[in-house]
Amino acid sequence: MGARITLVQGDITTQEVDAVVNAANSGLLGGGGVDGAIHRRGGPEILAECRQLRATSLPDGLPTGQAVATTAGKLPAQHVIHTVGPVYAKSKDRSELLASAYRESLRVADELGARTVAFPAISAGVYGWPMDDAARVAVETVGFTRTAVEEVRFVLFGDDAYEAFTRAAQPAH
């Protein structure tokens, strides 16, 4: 049913996969964290395609929880799937939007024919999502989503993220 989940601690921009998922902002024009790293390493072709999307099909930007693909430029991947995770809010449960970012990214991956996809920990950086909960939502959503993707590789930056995803990926006893 779902893809095989693997965990890697490292740099998502060096992953040799069919598609890399970018934790983008709705403007699609680059930013900090994973987004900035993907744009820097991938080169100007990614930004050029993002600008074209903004000029045509996404004039108001990419809505939270949605996903869209571009070239991967100079990255070792074939495609970049840009998705916008929600900003964490204590006062409101936005976990459905976070789950949607993973589901929609897998839907786009299926449209592209991607069999290997590398994900970052969406919303767990500057968007403030608590790492343990971000990992739980990510692993559960990928595990329950029907997809032709064979391997979902969570590429995690730092010990905290890797350990949180390791805990989330453990089968329940």
Rank of each mutant, 00 (worst) to 15 (best):
A23Y: 08
A109K: 09
Q78K: 15
N22P: 03
I38C: 10
I12D: 02
E49L: 05
V20T: 15
E45Q: 15
P130A: 06
R167P: 08
A161F: 03
A69M: 11
S105T: 05
G113E: 00
T141A: 06
C50L: 13
G143S: 15
P76A: 01
P63H: 07
A161Y: 05
N22I: 00
A134R: 02
V126F: 14
S100Q: 13
R54T: 10
D18I: 11
R167S: 07
A99E: 08
M1L: 15
T116R: 05
T70A: 03
F165N: 02
G27P: 03
A109Q: 09
A118M: 06
V68T: 07
E104S: 15
L53I: 13
E163G: 11
T6M: 05
I81E: 01
H39P: 05
T71R: 08
E150Y: 04
E151A: 01
Y162W: 12
V8I: 06
A135G: 03
G61R: 14
Q66R: 15
V21D: 12
E140W: 08
V21W: 14
K74A: 14
A109C: 04
K90H: 14
V34H: 04
R115N: 02
H173R: 13
A55H: 11
E45F: 13
Y162L: 14
V34E: 04
T147R: 00
L98M: 07
H79G: 01
E140D: 11
A138V: 02
A99Q: 11
L97I: 11
Y162N: 06
A72Y: 00
V84K: 00
A77D: 09
S123C: 10
V87L: 14
R115P: 06
T56A: 12
E150P: 08
F154T: 02
A164Q: 03
S95Y: 03
A138W: 10
H173F: 08
T70M: 00
L112H: 12
F165D: 01
A19E: 06
H82Y: 11
G42A: 06
A134D: 06
R51A: 04
